[in-house]
Computed example of a mutant assay.
Amino acid sequence: MVAVRRSKLKNESPFVANLESRTSTYSGVSSVGRKGTLALEYVRQGPQTVLSRSSCRTPWHLLPPIYLDDTGCAYTLLLNPSGGLVGGDHLTLNLSLGGRAHVLMSTPSANKVYRSLGAQAAQVVEITVGPEAILEWIPEPTIPFAGSRFCQAIHVTLAPSAAVVLWDAIVSGRIAAGERWAFACLKNEIRIATASGASILERYTLCPGDSSGEVGLVEPWNYVASLYVVSEAVDDEVWKRLEERLASLLDERPERILGGVSRPAVTGLAVKLVARSAPDLAFVLDGLWQATRRELWNLPPVVWRKY
């Protein structure tokens, strides 16, 4: 479900407020979980964005940003060397971008969520993007294993003239192992609030492991993804051109990719899609992302260096 609200929202939603109690419901299981925290602050320093302050607690591992081109964008990988999330894990990330900073966040591999006997794993991301700053949030997909329980919340607050490109994708499971929609439950929330007070909210729950055993119309597909591009500093004509371009990209692989692009009440675009395979998902992400960077900031495609 995607909803658009005009009123300002409190920093703490009921969705997030209940995460801690949910992860600790089964005390015997959650005792094996870890409470990892990662805090990152970026500022613009001359022609580059630099990491000005950081702190982390296991299982997060801090990698310093690198620079892939001459744009000054700080490219940072979020690394969890434990291999994935188990029941009882509660990871938090607090990310802050100062004025005119430009940060690209990604992950070196998929976010794996392992089987749990009761307690869920949770990940909460709180992001603040300063005036005229740009955040590109492009992680690898989340793979929920059979029997896993996962809850994620991503909240973004934009200052005047700030921009965010936010990508989020989940997989039906370990497809090669014959696991499709076999996880117990997955809950996801994305909220982006702009400086004008408008906000966009996506919230959904998939529980193929409950009594119904259904996930609705998404069942024939293996990947579900969302892309949000939001900025109050972009002209309406630019949004119109980008909307047309993104819509045409979604039509390039009929029967392999199904999606749509819309203009929500916030200033920007929302894309929802499903895909058959990992190559299909990578194809559509590359196209959507490249078109967005070119149209909004006249920036070249990113050449990944993850391995």
Rank of each mutant, 00 (worst) to 15 (best):
T71F: 06
G72I: 01
C73H: 00
C73D: 00
A74D: 13
T76Q: 13
L79C: 10
S82A: 10
G84C: 02
G84A: 06
G87M: 15
G88D: 04
G88V: 03
L91Y: 04
T92G: 07
T92P: 00
L93G: 13
S96Y: 06
L97T: 13
L97Y: 14
L97N: 03
V103E: 02
T107H: 03
P108S: 06
P108D: 12
N111S: 10
N111A: 08
V113Q: 03
Y114H: 08
R115W: 09
R115D: 05
R115M: 03
S116N: 01
A119D: 13
A119G: 09
A119S: 15
A119Q: 13
A119C: 07
A122S: 15
Q123A: 02
Q123V: 10
V124G: 06
V124M: 13
V125T: 13
V125F: 08
E126C: 04
E126M: 03
I127Q: 04
I127S: 03
T128F: 15
T128G: 07
V129M: 05
G130M: 11
G130S: 09
P131K: 00
E132R: 07
A133S: 06
I134S: 11
L135F: 01
L135R: 01
L135V: 08
E136Q: 11
E136C: 10
I138N: 14
I138E: 10
P139G: 13
E140I: 10
E140L: 11
P141D: 15
P141G: 03
T142Q: 12
I143Q: 05
P144Q: 08
P144I: 08
G147N: 06
G147F: 08
S148E: 03
S148M: 02
F150V: 07
C151T: 15
C151G: 00
A153Q: 15
A153V: 07
I154N: 08
I154Y: 00
I154E: 02
H155R: 14
H155M: 07
V156D: 12
A159F: 04
V164L: 05
V165G: 12
L166A: 15
L166P: 06
W167E: 09
W167A: 11
A169L: 12
A169K: 09
I170Q: 05
V171K: 06
V171C: 14
S172A: 05
G173N: 07
R174Q: 04
W181E: 11
A182W: 02
A182Q: 13
F183W: 14
F183H: 08
F183I: 14
